[in-house]
């Protein structure tokens, strides 16, 4: 039992490191691993190479890892919240809600010539995420069936995306190119300042959520049992919603909406762990999210270089079959 979780964590950490190095080394300019280490150690090497590494690839790789982890963790929390493995920030419309509100804010600010900092972006994203989550929750009061709820989420997501696209199309051209790219989901153009704030935010949230492990375990038994064990269910649910929205919002603010990582990763991880213990699940989901986003970002950059794919294109190719597999497994069991 314990061994299995060690193996899974070990494998994920290893994959994470390998992919991280690959992300730094591989690209239109190839930099060998030995050069890379030499450069990181002593700082010898070509100035352009150094700049590519330090200013472009390194922050981007860190962002992919951290945001991917945050996304998968957000998915895990939502799946716990709804007692359903097909929940995730993207299908429930939370990512799109965040996208809409970030886009709206960016357009308004850019038109007036104001710049937007990390904090502003995250606040806007959080607002949008909570708004979508609120709508989904209101639906969940009236709709018992999870399938219907997911469809509601997807519809919310379409509406938000449509409004976002509208706004982008009719906004002033000059600043919008980036925005368009962002609204499709991408890790490109991540600055060190962004890396710093996202790492702090996601790191702190991660610690808080890990500390909730005991309560999550009780909640997994169902609300009735959780309450009888002394868990304040309402407070717990509110906390869960806030943390999962915060994570999804943070990811969306920096990288736009990324599909499927939130649903698929926790499920694959659960299958590998053969356990539902919250703490190992959360650690492995985080690592798994990091691995999948690093891998997918690498593919997005390299597959059709120099053209870059949007990250969701790649995550969908891998993620959608996994979601189908989850649904088939569930059908078989029930």
């Amino acid at each position: 039992m314990r061994k299995r979780s060690h193996i899974v964590i070990g494998t994920l950490v290893f994959l994470c490191m390998v992919l991280f190095l690959c992300n730094i080394a591989i690209g239109t300019v190839y930099i060998s691993i030995s050069d890379l280490f030499a450069m990181l150690k002593g700082g010898v090497g070509l100035a352009t190479q150094k700049e590519i590494i330090l200013e472009i690839r390194l922050p981007r790789a860190i962002a992919a890892g951290v945001l991917g982890g945050g996304l998968a963790l957000s998915g895990y929390l939502l799946q716990t919240f709804f007692h359903n493995p097909i929940a995730g920030p993207f299908v429930l419309g939370i990512s799109s809600g965040a996208k809409l509100s970030v886009a709206a804010m960016l357009i308004i600010f850019l038109q007036r010539g104001l710049s937007v900092g990390s904090v502003g972006m995250i606040l806007a994203a959080f607002f949008g995420a909570m708004l979508s989550m609120g709508i989904v929750l209101i639906f969940s009061v009236f709709v018992e069936k999870m399938g219907t709820l997911i469809i509601a989420g997807i519809m919310i997501s379409y509406i938000c995306s449509a409004i976002t696209e509208c706004m982008i199309t009719f906004a002033e051209d000059s600043n919008i190119v980036n925005l368009h790219h962002w609204s499709q989901g991408s890790f490109s153009g991540t600055s060190w300042e962004h890396v710093r704030s996202m790492t702090v935010l996601i790191g702190v949230t991660f610690l808080f959520v890990i500390a909730m492990g005991k309560s999550i375990a009780a909640y997994q038994l169902g609300e009735g049992y959780a309450q009888s064990l002394g868990l304040s269910v309402i407070r717990f649910r509110v906390t869960l919603v806030i943390f999962s929205s915060l994570l999804a919002a943070c990811v969306t603010a920096y990288a736009g909406p990324i599909s499927f990582v939130g649903i698929a990763v926790p499920n694959v991880v659960r299958f590998c762990l053969r356990s539902e213990k919250p703490v190992p699940m959360m650690v492995c989901s985080f690592l798994g999210g990091a691995v999948s986003c690093l891998g997918c970002d690498l593919l997005a950059r390299v597959a059709f270089a120099p053209t870059e794919l949007s990250i969701s294109t790649v995550t969908a190719i891998f993620g959608a079959p996994i979601v189908l597999w989850i649904m088939l497994r569930r059908r078989k069991e029930s």
Partner: peptide, 10 residues
Amino acid sequence: LTTPIRTEYM
């Protein structure tokens, strides 16, 4: 309780 516990791997 009557509500079943829905777990996969517990």
